[in-house]
Amino acid sequence: MRDSVLAIVLAQEEEAGNDLIKVVPGLMIWTAVTFLITFYILKKLAFSRIQGLIDRRRDRIKEALDEADNARMEARALLEQHRQLIAEARAQADGVLAEARRQADAQHERVRAEASADLERRLEENQRAIAAENRKLLEQVRREVVELTLLASEKVTGKVLTADDQRRLIDEAVGELDFDQLAKLN
């Protein structure tokens, strides 16, 4: 039974097989015509339009990329500029600080020098005042010594001394006094 079926199918295949591989010029012409019409219409209506759109989008993307590049370069330039500004500001601040320090040091030095000079001046003034006071005291002591000497001499001798006697006695009395000791005692 299977052989019979196979025989029938094979016979049909053989009969129709020629149709399957037969080249039909008319069908080839129809194929070429329909394809060429399809090709022409797609080329005119579809491909050109979508290619134009893709080109436009490519241009837009290129423009956007260029803009992004420019913006990035601009941002970099601004950043560089800001860095420079910050560096300059820092340099200026450092300068101002150094100047302030320098001025403060100078002020400090000047004040110290002035204080020192003032101190020395005061010391000198004090020393001068002390020396003057010493001299005044010595003079006073000398006068009192002379007066006492004269008074003692008049009482001892019982006579009024001449000017020459007074001068001689004064010189002798003063000569015997140690004024340095007196100054030290003061």
Binding site: M1, S4, V5, I8, Q12, E13, A16, G17, D19, L20
Partner: peptide
Amino acid sequence: SPLILAAEVFEPQHEFRL
């Protein structure tokens, strides 16, 4: 047989006849 008849009726290559 019915099988042979069915085989005769079923001809897939006929779909490609023009």
